[in-house]
Design a protein around this nucleic acid. Structure first.
Lengths: 233, 233
DNA sequence: AATTATATTATGTGATCACAATTTTAGAAT
DNA sequence: ATTCTAAAATTGTGATCACATAATATAATT
């Protein structure tokens, strides 16, 4: 058996899920989202199965599910790989984030009440706390939790899976790119979003969400150079 | 063995695909899209496997993939069902179609050249031919082919899987709903879209696509009543 | 006759296995 | 040293099986 680089794969206890395949899926998903699995390296079913101490079956199902969310690529030779996306695609993913998330926020607004706003403030504080700790990964996850909490209030859920897919596609590249950037500041427009919600101002909410996403993109200024470096490595 | 209602499942030869699971997926997908599988009836792995003359494995993978595209629901008791979507959700799916497809069309425009326009005209004629034959299913598929051909010209492909997912979610309900409508006229704005493309007018193209989708929605006027009928049956 | 309790059948899930295709390694030839 | 070739190891795929759970049918009770 060959020695392999070990990326920690842990989430919650396997027993907490009624299906093992669901647990495997969630574990791999967060692992990809957080950039623990580097773009380009091939994932093998047996390898993951052994690492997670399950049979190959749940791994296969999880990988196919991730493939249909564009989180992994299945090449012609049937190898599974976390793709390294091009700068063009990266920017397009951000365009779609703006398109879908402003839409989702506006539709969710009528369903957000006082108690939800308290929760949003708490979630926003969690974001700030993570970033001031310098923890990029948990900050990013907390940021997603903030956004998700808004959109989820809409009882008609069609956007959310698509938005999740966008986040998932952006995750790996964003993570490796951020590690190349020596220093950056993480702004967010969560306060403005909360204000807009409290004043029930749909347009202001859209603006806040859009600005928040744009700020997120602006961190990746020299993205083309980063991409070239990553591709050659 | 109990007698079961038989819906024809056929697409292309199983051998034409390098993977059986891919063939199973495509077969089930078109079957759902065309409304051959009625919303609400439970799909069993073994049942489909027997009907398609494959083992349960490729069926399982196909069903999970369809579930992650929201084409089927997996209930708490792990039954797989084509969902009957609510009128609100139906309308929201159309909103998202407009949002994503106008965006996709605009981004694709710079990549559409003369030869593509000839192909588009041919595809449009195929749509008209199907509808004048009164063949709703092939007309709908031809219509999708027309739209897909436009969006696909963009080398950066991120929208297309999402749009396909929207079409897939709309398919079953649209099909059963159409069968309840005694007579309707199928307008389309494909000529206007082609004109806009030839004049390289992005805004006009957006308008044509949006109008085309809205026309499609307008067919379902009494959608709430149809939904009530379907739910009780 | 309706309802509850029990037994039986179906069904989804995860594991294991054989086989073909791919990848990797090792060796040979230039 | 480099390139090409053959052998070995690895890997994805599809099939089959055991087991637990859910759905259905049957029997019993009121």
């Amino acid at each position: 058996m060959k020695e392999k680089k070990s990326y920690s794969l842990s989430l919650a206890n396997k027993k907490d899920f009624n299906n093992i395949n669901e647990w495997v899926y969630q574990t791999l998903r967060t692992s990809i989202m957080c950039g623990e699995i580097r773009p380009g390296v091939a994932l093998t079913i047996r390898g993951l199965a052994e690492k997670l101490d399950v049979s190959s079956m749940p791994v296969r199902e999880a990988l196919r599910r991730l493939a249909s969310e564009s989180a992994v690529d299945i090449t012609d030779s049937r190898r599974v790989v976390v793709p390294l996306i091009s700068p063009d695609k990266f920017k397009e993913l951000f365009s779609l984030r703006i398109l879908l998330e402003t839409h989702a926020a506006e539709l969710a607004l009528p369903y957000i009440s006082g108690s939800h706003i308290e929760e949003l403030k708490a979630l926003d504080e969690a974001v700030d706390a993570s970033y001031s700790d310098g923890n990029i990964v948990s900050g990013s996850l907390a940021n997603q939790a903030f956004h998700r909490y808004i959109y989820k209030q809409n009882p008609v859920q069609v956007c959310m899976p698509m938005i999740e897919s966008l986040w998932l596609q952006l995750g790996p590249f964003a993570r490796v790119a951020l590690s190349k950037i020596e220093k950056y500041y993480e702004y967010d427009r969560h306060k403005e979003a909360i204000d807009a919600i409290q004043q029930r101002d749909a347009f202001a909410l859209r603006r806040a969400i859009e600005a928040d996403i744009r700020d997120g993109l602006s961190v990746f200024k020299n993205i083309d150079k980063i991409y070239q470096d990553l591709k050659s490595s």
